[in-house]
């Protein structure tokens, strides 16, 4: 079993979509980092990501990895949020795969992402749904 610590430490990012804004250059990092890759800045303020965005690119995975088999077909997308931050998320509640498109507006909803078996922890985070 993985220690609960591994997912617990990511709760601010996964649960609340907290990101780090570099006080030097303004770049928003999600997830936060220790050093800004753009300007080398090491001071950040916490900002919350917007929950609306659009699909940059996507795929429909017919052969999902362990822990996601029951959810096939699994729609994964790179989503660009309103503030320009990109994040890889699942797209849930797609009524018809033909509706998926680059540029499609989505919003992020709080969902279960995976679980450590029937008796283990449930890992929560965000998924995109059609807006």
């Amino acid at each position: 079993m993985r220690s609960p610590g591994r997912s617990w430490r990511e709760h601010p990012q996964r649960y609340r979509l907290e990101a780090a804004k570099c006080t030097g250059c303004g770049r928003i990092l999600y997830p936060p980092r220790v050093v800004c890759p753009d300007c080398g800045g090491r001071e950040f303020e916490t900002v919350t990501l917007p929950r609306k965005g659009t699909i940059v690119t996507y795929t429909v995975i017919d052969v999902p990895p362990t822990g996601f088999q029951g959810q096939a077909p699994l729609v994964l997308a790179l989503v660009e949020l309103e503030n320009g931050v990109r994040t890889m998320v699942q797209v849930a509640d797609v009524p018809d795969m033909d509706r998926l498109a680059v540029g499609m507006p989505v919003k992020l909803e709080f969902r279960r992402i995976s679980e450590d078996g029937e008796a283990g922890l449930i890992f929560y985070g965000h998924k995109a749904v059609p807006a």
Binding site: G70, Q71, Q90, A92, D93, E109, F110, R111, R112
Partner: peptide
Amino acid sequence: PALDEDTVTLAVEAAR
């Protein structure tokens, strides 16, 4: 509910 929805996820969205 879908496999990824439960009392907690529904509660969070309602609360938001």
